[in-house]
């Protein structure tokens, strides 16, 4: 068995196995994400009209040369709105993931490094967080803080935190019981150095991938909450809010919902493709 794998690596099968189409997909996804980031930082580079400007006589323009993605019921340019919406969506996605990760690291490390009792306590907290439907959690936050981006980020972040926390805990436990941590102890390194130089970096490594995919997931979540009216209030150019606003006209003006929806799908798809690629790279190097 071992011999067979040895043969495979000698013959550089790994390089052959990667299909060309996958590389192309990664390229496309990467480029799309890059463009999104540029759009979020400097939307005026892509869109020249004001995303909030109302032009009543231009209402319900179908997609065409003047308005690439058409206009909505108040004559606002959908292309500009989608582009300007990038900032909010990405911000929500990144901030929510960062928040989730922050909570996850604290809980996961406490559980993974603490004693049996601490671990059980952390387990309870996680289970409670898991048991709460995130939608109810989000409603709770909106009820307390009012709707808007802040509560949206917190709700989305809290909703995805327990999943990450479980992963961090599992990773920490696995790395903590690994041969190289034992070897480091046998060498005589003090615990803090082992945690800082070996345990944390190794435990966090596989999470980079999950985080990449998590950003896309968080965007979908936030959009869903916005769609339900729990996020940025209309007429803010936020993808979920735009979907919600276009809902009433979906029969005769499909472009109101189609383009924001398309961007949500493309963003999630891109983060997933890039995440998968990173995963393959990292695992290829690890195993």
């Amino acid at each position: 068995m071992s011999e067979l794998t040895l043969d495979a690596s000698q013959l550089n099968v790994r390089a052959q196995r990667k299909p060309r189409s996958l590389r192309l997909g990664v390229w496309l996804a990467g480029t799309f994400l890059l463009l999104l980031i540029v759009a979020a930082l400097a939307p005026q580079l892509f869109a020249h009209s004001d995303p909030l400007a109302i032009v009543p006589r231009d209402a319900f323009h179908a997609p065409g040369w003047g308005h690439w993605f058409g206009t909505d019921q108040s004559g606002r340019d959908i292309f500009s709105r989608v582009i300007y919406g990038t900032r909010q969506s990405l911000l929500i996605g990144l901030a929510a993931t960062a928040l989730a990760m922050g909570i996850a690291i604290v809980l996961g490390l406490t559980g993974g490094l603490g004693g049996r009792r601490t671990d059980r306590g952390v387990g309870w907290v996680l289970e409670i967080l898991f048991a709460f439907p995130s939608l109810v959690l989000a409603l709770l936050f909106v009820a307390i803080f009012g709707s808007g981006i802040g509560p949206l980020i917190i709700a989305t972040g809290l909703g995805s935190a327990p999943g990450y926390a479980r992963m961090v805990r599992g990773q920490v436990l696995a790395v903590r019981n690994s041969g190289y941590i034992e070897a480091a102890r046998a060498l005589g390194h003090p615990p803090l150095r082992i945690i800082g130089r070996q345990l944390l970096p190794n435990a966090m490594r596989p999470l980079i991938v999950t985080l990449t995919m998590g950003v896309g997931q968080a965007i979908v979540w936030a959009s869903a909450l916005s769609f339900l009216g729990l996020g940025a209030p209309p007429p803010a150019p936020e993808w979920g809010t735009m979907l919600s606003m276009g809902r009433d006209f979906v029969a005769n003006a499909w472009w109101l919902t189609f383009f924001p929806g398309l961007f949500i799908v493309l963003t999630t798809l891109s983060t997933t493709v890039v995440g998968r690629y990173l995963q393959q790279r990292l695992e290829g190097r690890l195993s």
């Binding site: 041969g179 070897a183 046998a186 060498l187 190794n202």
Partner: peptide
């Protein structure tokens, strides 16, 4: 014990798992 650990070391059966993969 830690300061005297330099006087005693260990070699494992599977060296790979005893090295930090990074």
């Amino acid at each position: 014990r830690r300061i005297y650990r330099r006087d005693i070391s260990v070699i494992y059966q599977d060296p790979l798992s005893s090295f930090d993969p990074r």
